[in-house]
Design a binder for these strands. Structure first.
Lengths: 204, 204
DNA sequence: TATCATAGTCACCAGTTGGTGACAAGTCAG
DNA sequence: CTGACTTGTCACCAACTGGTGACTATGATA
């Protein structure tokens, strides 16, 4: 038709993104991608050798995570804030950002039940970003030695991820309604109170 | 062969459990179940009308969750303990129990990416059990009005679930190694410190 | 204009899936 | 023993999956 290799490749990659975002990785097969892209599937095999390699290039092209800089944002200039302020700020930002990224959510779902090389590679990228954020935090205001800040962060981040992933399927969890903003406000408030209470009493 | 309807039905249900526990619900098809049970698949259609109905009866037969009583256990007799003690106790028990229940883990994975009637029904059972635990907690030691204990619990439970679900796939998260018990000890300690710090200062 | 590599099309393959109809083999009542 | 019913077996179906070989259409170059 268009006889343009690059555009065809782009259409294929775009189809991957669209399918991934709207129907998850379960429907993500060669045939479905070809159908969505309006492209013969043999071209997928020609341009991207495999479905794994196709997904690999798709994974490399996109930015599915906030970088530390984006996460920190303008406030990076502010100095000498308290640790708990920084933590709750970053966590809430992470929450709000993740809610917007449907593809990232699907990748996280995918990670949760398949141990591909692809998902593991994506997981490595994510983990590096997360530990980088921790490093940033630590050099911003040093972690109190009596608190295991990484473990605490792990629990909270895990909770955020799980709650965000759940809302696509079910609007309630533990009697909290996540279809309305007020449910999320309660979660954000809970994160704030958890972080402030746990991390704050450094000086006591 | 054996010409015993009830045993055949039991074998089919057992095959569902085994497949679900070891390879998840993605491999859970009629053919796979029949293969695993060593039974012709037409019998599945005869005894359980459908695959959904088969899974439904399977779901009804099993106890995939601790009841409140089991969760509370012997300590139910102890009175007038502090709320934060109770919460951390229940949360850590929930964590340890969930780690043992591979089928429950698969159900949770399933819930996370399919909104069947079946998964929603199972989710309702789970949610009721969780809210019952909250009620129990509340009447044991009334929630402080300035803290949103349900929301705090939701974040922590969600974190626990996510971390447990993750470990089957990837042994690390945020630089924490979950293949060794020490990683889980850090998590348990983090939960403890989070709960104690956040809930404790009721009297202050 | 003839050549030739490239882009795209089409038909096919084997394997698997959920699902069904026809039939053999036991079992039990009359 | 005969008939009826249940349990289990086998063969088949359409639809779909990932994957491939052979083909045509196109455009640039010589």
């Amino acid at each position: 038709m268009v006889r343009d290799k690059e555009e065809t490749k782009a259409r294929i990659l775009a189809a991957v993104g669209k399918l991934l975002a709207e129907s998850g990785f379960q429907q993500l097969g060669i045939n479905a991608i070809a159908r969505e892209a309006g492209v013969d599937k043999v071209l997928i095999y020609r341009y991207f050798e495999n479905l794994p390699t196709l997904l690999q290039t798709f994974g490399k092209e996109g930015n599915y995570w906030l970088t530390v800089e984006e996460l920190v944002g303008d406030e990076a200039t502010i100095e000498a804030e308290a640790l708990e302020k920084w933590m709750s700020l970053l966590l809430v930002r992470f929450l709000r950002d993740l809610q917007q990224r449907s593809i990232t959510q699907e990748i996280l779902r995918w990670e949760l039940l398949e141990g591909n090389e692809l998902t593991q590679e994506l997981a490595q990228v994510r983990d590096r970003m997360a530990t980088d954020s921790l490093k940033f935090l630590n050099q911003k205001c040093a972690f109190p030695p009596d608190k295991d800040i990484p473990a605490i962060s792990a629990v909270l981040i895990a909770g955020i991820v799980y709650l965000v992933l759940r809302t696509k399927i079910s609007p309630t969890f533990l009697g909290i309604d996540f279809s309305s903003p007020s449910g999320w406000q309660r979660i954000e408030a809970a994160i704030l109170s958890l972080v402030e209470a746990t991390v704050q009493n450094d000086e006591l």
